[in-house]
Amino acid sequence: MATLALPGRDHRDPGRSPGSRRVVQSLLRTSPLIPAVVLLLLFLAGPIVYSLYGSLTNASLTGPKAAQPDFVGFDNYAQLIDNPQFWKSLVLTLVFVIASALIGQNLLGMALALLMKAAHGPMRAVVSTIVVVSWVLPEIVAAFALYAFFASDGTLNIMLGWFGVEGSAWLIVLPMLAVILANVWRGTAFSMMVYSAALNDVPPEITEAAQIDGASGWQRFSRITVPMIRRSISTNLMLTTLQTLGVFTLIWVMTGGGPGVESSTLPVLAYQEAFKFSQVGYGTAIATVTLVLGGLFAIVYIKALKPEVD
């Protein structure tokens, strides 16, 4: 950008090498970014590098290793690979992300956005308020509310009782389903709002033209609406995935990762190892794996829904 604005300038100053002048100029012009870059390095890259380093030590919360952790290379990672519980956690994390973020929040959010577009004013206001309330609640409050809903003497079982159905201890019997539904309930509003905004940007004349050409509702949606809002879809997928990957409070409050390890996703496992079992280095290794997993998801989205191809 900076160089484009100055065509031909170099020819007026033959004494100096054009290359170095350009470098100096572009350096000068990017200099306002320096503070932002420094802050990013300090508060984003810093902790990541530190966590990488931490995962290569046997640091612990107490004991001799708290005072003087040793550098153990990739021991923690080797231990993780050997640990069946880690693989189970990895699968649970993928199930949680795919079921609650990719499928639940996205599809439901899209469906709600489409329905709201078609709905009348008051209806729209009422529905969007109800949906957004679950999103506005702080995570800890939402988690307690959902615990109260799924607990064995909770709302769900009382309501089932009205129909003569005997409930179950959902958080014990189906812990993953409970936390997945909880996360869908909590996160759908975000997707709905993103998609509502995106749908408003689709020019109605294009859809109308397609309608006149005889395109069915589904065809109009899949051939026109979706391609036009693909940027929003990709951004939303990325955001909900990363948000869901990091969900901790919801699961910790509802099931504590249990029973046993039945709902221990990677963040819960990392917390358990680092802060309950005092193995900070090992826990950090799990956190680093979670970080890498998030990075992989991000790359897949960017590749799959290349925004620049239009």
């Binding site: 107490t62 004991g63 001799p64 290793k65 708290a66």
Partner: peptide, 10 residues
């Protein structure tokens, strides 16, 4: 916790 915490220098 005394031994581990003493060893940790707490």
């Amino acid at each position: 916790q005394v031994r581990p915490d003493a060893a940790a220098g707490f």
